[in-house]
């Protein structure tokens, strides 16, 4: 209703983050005259302190998110600040290191930070895009209702198939039994439950009635009705054709519902998966930054 986390308080934190980046740039350019810019100049130290402070503020978001009794500043405000300050962090830190990289713990900390920021960018993208996609896919129906619909269609499909033939019944039963929703994160994201879905069933149903070479070319392009009218040869009875068409309709409907649920699961997974990188990497970053700071002071 009040827009997204990006425009909180009339882009208040965008402005603050931009100001911070500008200060960082000024500090960097002011250090150009002496030795090559690095973390050891006073500008470098200042930028380092800014970077470390930013990291602590950004990490505190994880704590604040769970302080449910604290209602002083809304979490939306914190989230908006988290996003913009998180974007300004690589600016400050890159200028802090003066583009000096190597195979050491300092660059490790830098790399971890960049990974956290990149995963954060993905998270931002996911939070901006998928809620709407998910809402559209749901179309006012809850996942529980969709799954209940699938169960109902399973029953209807099985009843129709039972009337048709034993083979048809077993085909539908197998389809029902082998439909898996969700699963591992990989399965959730790929929407692949590792099992054949509707097209194969159509193949098999078709194979039961028609010569396979004929079917192979046309089964995917023709509508179920046309397909059956053309190739139905086991029985000429209109009633039976009608039943097969009815069954295919139910199975199609069922398949589209299964797809909707899988899409729903996928969108949820898209919105969650990045946190499995973002959060542990943040913790690793904190550790690396500590080592970086301690070692710098140790060799000073």
């Amino acid at each position: 209703m009040y827009g997204s986390i990006l425009n909180y308080g009339n882009y208040r934190y965008l402005k603050q983050a931009a100001a911070l980046a500008l200060i960082a740039l000024l500090l960097y350019f002011s250090s150009l005259s002496d030795e090559p810019p690095n973390g050891g100049t006073w500008q470098g130290y200042t930028l380092g302190v800014i970077g470390a402070a930013l990291i602590l503020i950004l990490l505190w978001f994880g704590i604040r998110k769970r302080q449910y009794h604290c209602t002083k500043n809304s979490l939306a405000r914190w989230a908006s600040a988290h996003v913009y300050l998180g974007i300004s962090l690589p600016v400050a830190v890159t200028l802090h290191c003066g583009f000096q990289f190597g195979w050491n713990v300092h660059t490790l900390a830098y790399t971890l930070m960049m990974l956290v920021v990149v995963s954060g960018f993905y998270g931002l993208y996911a939070y901006l895009v998928y809620p709407e996609a998910l809402t559209a896919n749901r179309n006012g129906v809850s996942r529980r209702e969709m799954i209940a619909d699938i169960a109902k269609l399973n029953d209807t499909g099985l009843t129709l198939a039972e009337d048709l033939s034993t083979e048809a019944y077993h085909l539908v039963l197998r389809e029902v039994e082998e439909t898996h929703l969700g699963g591992t994160l990989w399965h959730q994201i790929t929407m692949n439950s590792g099992l054949p879905a509707m097209p194969l069933l159509q193949w098999k149903l078709a194979g039961n009635f028609v010569a396979s070479e004929q079917a192979s070319s046309s089964v995917t392009t023709l509508s179920p009705e046309d397909f059956l009218r053309k190739y139905f040869r086991k029985s000429e009875s209109t009633a039976e054709i009608h039943r097969v068409v009815e069954l295919l309709k139910v199975l199609n409907e069922r398949q589209s519902m299964v797809n909707r649920v899988q899409l729903d699961i996928r969108y949820h997974a898209f919105m969650k998966c990045w946190l499995f990188l973002h959060v542990p990497l943040s913790c690793a970053l904190l550790a690396a930054v500590l080592v970086h700071v301690v070692s710098v002071f140790f060799y000073w």
């Binding site: 909180y8 209602t71 914190w78």
Partner: peptide
């Protein structure tokens, strides 16, 4: 409505994107 919390309902203030109002 979190009547005993000073900052109003926790559900609203804990929403990170401002979707709850």
């Amino acid at each position: 409505m979190c009547k005993d919390l000073s900052g109003g309902p926790a559900c609203v203030s804990a929403c990170p994107t401002g979707a709850a109002f």
